[in-house]
Design a protein around this nucleic acid. Structure first.
Lengths: 126, 126
DNA sequence: TTATGTGCAAATCATTTGCAAGATC
DNA sequence: GATCTTGCAAATGATTTGCACATAA
């Protein structure tokens, strides 16, 4: 993987977020600073970075994928109303993978835990 | 929600599965019996049925959504190689939602737990 | 006889890809 | 200079939608 200015910009921009943005959000933000960057480049780099383990792709919401600069195992909370994704800084249940292994036709290498509900902001609105 | 023959067919066909098919798989199977049913109808009915809680939409794999006729809380295992989705009949961790609530800016109403790894069949191939 | 559901084709949304030109090693 | 990366536009894949016709209540 060669160096590229655009890839660095994508990485830097994602790191500014704590709210797991989608590719088009990163694109829109970068466009302001770098009016020539293309959406395809943003997609290409997000894909490359997640394949190399530098960032994490979150695929549990319908519609667009979200991206997380924090690659350490942690959990998420998704608001069913607005679709926003929040971190859940609770203790990780390390034992789960071993627990599951007995019930699975294969080898378990990890897990993903997502909580659903309604965020405070959306609750206030309704 | 009125009765419709097509919706019943979609429901019945999904119930025959234990492997969480996608909309286009259900469509292809139904087409053999009912050569006039359309893909749009299959999508419409899968959406309606999941909105009414009669089935469950699984959105954790990139690409197409999968559907599950079993609406009871249970966990899944996804093979990273072939993308197939298996049930994990382990005990559900009931306490998780309450545990998470303390760390979440909103109200938790449920969770989804997905294990990742490689299924036996794919392991044999490589 | 009104509201709902269907089939078809076209539209939309997220993402990927081919290609010629530009940047990196 | 060979290889990797970009920007653009076109292609792809999954899903939704508009509309005229058919079916259910």
């Amino acid at each position: 993987m060669n160096y590229s200015r655009q890839r660095e910009e994508v990485m830097d921009q994602l790191k500014l977020h704590h709210d797991h943005p989608t590719a088009d959000i990163i694109f829109a933000e970068l466009r302001e600073r770098d009016p020539n960057i293309s959406l395809a480049t943003v997609y290409r780099n997000l894909k490359l970075l997640s394949e190399h383990g530098a960032i994490k792709k979150l695929t549990f919401v319908s519609g667009a994928d979200h991206f997380d600069p924090n690659t350490e195992l942690h959990y998420h909370f998704v608001c069913n109303e607005c679709g926003r994704v929040f971190d859940v800084p609770m203790k990780v249940a390390e034992h789960l993978d071993q627990d599951a292994e007995a019930f699975v036709p294969g080898e378990v290498t990890g897990h993903e835990l997502v909580f659903y509900g309604v965020c405070d902001e959306c609750a206030r609105k309704s």
